[in-house]
Simulated scan of single mutants.
Amino acid sequence: MEPVSFGVLGASSFALAHTARAIHEAEGARLAALATSSPAKAEPFRAFAPDLRVHESYDALLADPAIEAVYIPLPNHLHVEWTLKALEAGKHVLCEKPIAMRADQIDALIEARDRTGLFASEAYMIVHHPQWQLVRRLLDEGAIGAVRHVDTVQTFDVGADADNIRNRAETGGGSVPDVGVYTYGSVRFAARAEPVELTSRIRRENGVEVWAHAMGTMAGATGEFTFASTTSTRLPDRQEAVFQGEDGMIRVTVPCNAGVVGEAQVHLVRGDVTLVERFPSARQYVLQVQNMVATVRTGAPYPWSLEDARGNQAMIDMVLANEV
């Protein structure tokens, strides 16, 4: 099977550290091109992909007939624009999250995907990790009975980095779009749940939301449950998700940055018994690319659709619209 040739739009530090490397290492994929006007920024990519072609503009990469798929790690406010351009250029698309700034913007992406017949999805890597697949399976099997409460947290501190896109309103910064996509979306995915009502308390600096606490009610397969989430770009690193049911509890460690800030684990607690499943070597970015390749080449099911991304963004929109 011919490898899928990928191009990357922009020499972002995130692409360099994670997804570009994952494309290079994934079975069935080939990192073939990078778009950047800075030759110096291309050199770290060439260190592990020496045959990389470098285009001076995003449009030039999209015009490259040898490129079959693109990965888009651009700032949040550019995701919709360049996903649409890539689809119109005949490329499959994996775009960083959040793929849009409002839920209704994703409708145009769904239309373009369906019209072109191409693959397009948000780079929502956690659903490819066996950690979250296990949590979903345990909830489906009733391992803790009916879910009664879920709380999630993800925080990190970029307060000293004024140029960070997460600190800039014009690039779609803030903790809710950047990591609320995980603290909300992981619950939607694992518990097959959607929000019923939500309110939020938010703190801002220079027009950018830097701390948000969302709370309310969600409804899943086992009925309604209470929900709480804290996200911040001004607190030390912390990640955790806890699902409490009528018969037990599931605690998820490092639910987003598995293997980066700690080991991914799932703790199943029932009475005095705790079972721990560890995932020391699973690489979610590589798995994400390999699943995309399988979908593009064979039509295999892909665990995160644009419709799933739209549901996430609708929940983000709800949180931001219901500040108290």
Rank of each mutant, 00 (worst) to 15 (best):
T116Y: 04
Y302E: 15
S38P: 04
L74E: 04
I72C: 05
G223S: 05
A123E: 01
M315Q: 10
S281H: 14
A29K: 06
V4E: 04
R168A: 10
T295Y: 08
V153F: 03
R310P: 02
H92R: 05
V70D: 07
S175P: 15
G207I: 07
A29E: 09
A212T: 15
Q284R: 07
A63R: 15
A314F: 00
A11M: 08
A60H: 05
G207R: 01
F227S: 05
T155P: 12
P303K: 08
G223A: 01
Q313G: 02
F243N: 09
D161N: 10
A103K: 02
L134D: 03
H128I: 00
A29C: 11
T152F: 04
A20P: 06
F6T: 09
P44K: 12
V80A: 04
W82E: 04
V293T: 07
S229L: 08
A42I: 11
L320N: 00
T19I: 14
C95Y: 03
G7W: 03
Q131Y: 01
A32D: 13
P73N: 00
G245Y: 03
S229H: 13
L52C: 09
R53C: 02
T231N: 14
A228D: 13
T36Y: 09
T116P: 02
A86W: 01
D157W: 06
I23T: 01
A63C: 12
L78R: 12
V252E: 12
V54M: 15
R278T: 14
T171R: 06
A143D: 00
